[in-house]
Design a protein around this nucleic acid. Structure first.
Lengths: 338, 338
DNA sequence: AAATATAAGTAAAACGTTTTATTATAAACA
DNA sequence: TGTTTATAATAAAACGTTTTACTTATATTT
């Protein structure tokens, strides 16, 4: 194993001090009036020796690591791995690396992951908070740790978030069904006490009430951790209620429900119309294709990283921001009687 | 912002030296004969003050970071995000964090990502190497950087790998088609010069030759970066060759091909049988469901992490390992004439 | 010519740990 | 009693950077 090359090695070889090497390699040569030929020499030697700075030493000295943490529910869920991809891309653009972890929708685990990341010296966190983690998020914000909530958020705490206009999305998707002639529209959603779910529900109810269909509002809930059984139960309820359309409130719910509906051989959309959120292979390959609300994920993830980095690099600038993006309805076969 | 608590703070509060605090908190109290009541007190104070060690300082001093890097082609591809999930889980079990990056099947980018990770002080790398990165991988191994190639590998270099028995998988899937009455079986694969692809091809040819169908061997290649157009071209060729079955060699290829075939309204499996690799929502929701070779991804990813950590923690133990796992054929509607 | 300003570079401290070598005290021994 | 041994704790060095404050040499001003 060849020995790591240090600033000291470059300094010796170039016959200058360690300080000067550091100054030059950090592009502060001009500012410090280093003679161009000296700077040039240092750079040359550094390149020759194939110098790579020691990140730990740098972090220790500078008090920052140029690393951000990303906590999602489950990195293997395409919705989140898409977010991860966009986060990665933007972070890279700004010279940041990304640590990721999956919370499994578990508040205690989220807390542990966050503390672990902090203790590892990440500079900030992007988190898709799960139910029950309100206090954690509030605490992190309190501790002045750069933080952005993505996709979900807790209202009433002093922490920045970026998410979809979920109320509008719930409304739009319901309106779409109503306009296509459906009347007994049901909603399958998490029992989550999280704004995300509440807002989609509210939008759904807005549209139903507005169309005079308030009496048809029917909500079935499912539980993370026992998705399969609770989806089966939810679908049974919805069918028993003689619904003619279902809104599946997240893509995880949708995937589970689609498998069940597929087994039941229910004719979509004649017997039952379906709409979902977020898209994905399941929606594209189901027959018929599933209508859904598309989130501008790339823009959202990018914005999240940019705001986070601003917070990191300017500690005077950590005011709360609440940013909402508009979803877009992608109309397909699963919701058109025609 | 409350000030970070340091060993020094604990030491002052507990009226002992910094050294002793370090010893106790690293569970070396017993070994160093620290009086139990003193150890107890230190632990209590540490907890009270909510101490979290500074990772940078620790890394600098210990020369390791308990962080591993994961380089895949694209984290948003479900195949890789699944790997990521399993890698994460195993790494966590051993107290390691995970940095991830996507290479976009670009060798130059892979090299950059790897150097970046190394300079950031990761202890080892798990990499799904892309075409053209043979020299990079060989170089990393040469430099004695703990490294495991996952899913793909380069033969003839001194670097550990874990992958599927791809030749067997190619053989099995072809055999399955032959046994179900298909004769003009074609293969759509990357033009990659990477063992992964070559082995699947070889297995396919083995089975065809063995069955006396050597003259029917027909291979169409596609190019990463222009997946859509090259898949369209490949499928045209395969159809023109009057194939009655297609083996789609990776899940990315499969997803693209399935979309095209779906548009063309070709009847599966009557006109054309289909088989793929790796599974995923696309395979589950296509009608009929797609037959595929399932990789034991969890076991593979777990093993990769474990071997990597062994290499990291025992530098005398870095001999090359070549581990193959057996795939399992999941038979479904897309490949049965019945 | 003396005083002052500028230019170019360096020494040394600091970041927060871990660990090695050392010290102080008590116990054991001759 | 004086020397050695064992025990419990500590001081100080080291990890590889960045940065502050300082030095030296040269140029400029009066």
């Amino acid at each position: 194993m060849r020995k790591r090359v240090l600033l000291k090695d470059i300094a010796e070889q170039a016959n200058v001090s360690i300080s000067l090497v550091s100054i030059v390699l950090n592009d502060k040569a001009r500012k410090n009036g280093v003679r161009p030929e000296v700077a040039e020499k240092i750079r040359r030697v550094a390149k020759e020796l194939n110098y790579a700075p020691n990140a730990a030493a740098k972090s220790l000295r500078e008090g920052r690591s140029r690393t951000i943490g990303l906590i999602v529910s489950d990195i293997s869920n395409p919705f989140f791995s898409n977010i991860a991809r966009h986060v990665e891309r933007t972070a890279e653009k700004y010279g940041y690396a990304v640590h990721f972890s999956s919370s499994d929708e578990n508040a205690a685990k989220t807390a542990m992951l966050a503390e672990n990341m902090i203790s590892r010296g990440i500079d900030g966190i992007i988190v898709v908070p799960c139910e029950g983690s309100r206090d954690l998020i509030a605490d992190l914000a309190e501790r002045n740790i750069p933080l952005v909530q993505l996709d979900r958020f807790f209202p009433g705490i002093n922490a920045t978030h970026i998410c979809l206009n979920n109320r509008k999305a719930g409304y739009d998707v319901t309106r779409h069904l109503i306009e296509n002639g459906y009347r007994k529209i049901s909603m399958i959603n998490y029992s989550f006490d999280i704004q995300h779910a509440l807002d989609r529900n509210a939008g759904y109810e807005d549209a139903m009430n507005e169309a005079g269909l308030g009496k048809n509002i029917f909500k079935a809930t499912v539980t993370h951790g026992k998705m399969e059984e609770s989806c089966i139960a939810a679908i049974s309820k919805v069918i028993k209620a003689q619904s003619d359309a279902i809104i599946m409130s997240t893509n995880t719910i949708a995937i589970n429900c689609l498998k069940i509906l597929s087994d039941k051989k229910i004719r979509i959309p004649e017997e039952l119309a379906l709409v979902g959120f977020d898209g994905g292979d399941a929606f594209d390959f189901f027959t018929p294709e599933i209508t859904y609300i598309m989130q501008p994920l790339e823009a959202m993830a990018q914005k999240a990283v940019e705001i986070l980095i601003e917070q990191i690099e300017d500690s005077t600038n950590r005011f709360k921001q609440e940013i909402e993006y508009e979803g877009k309805l992608i109309e397909r076969g699963s919701s058109k009687k025609s």
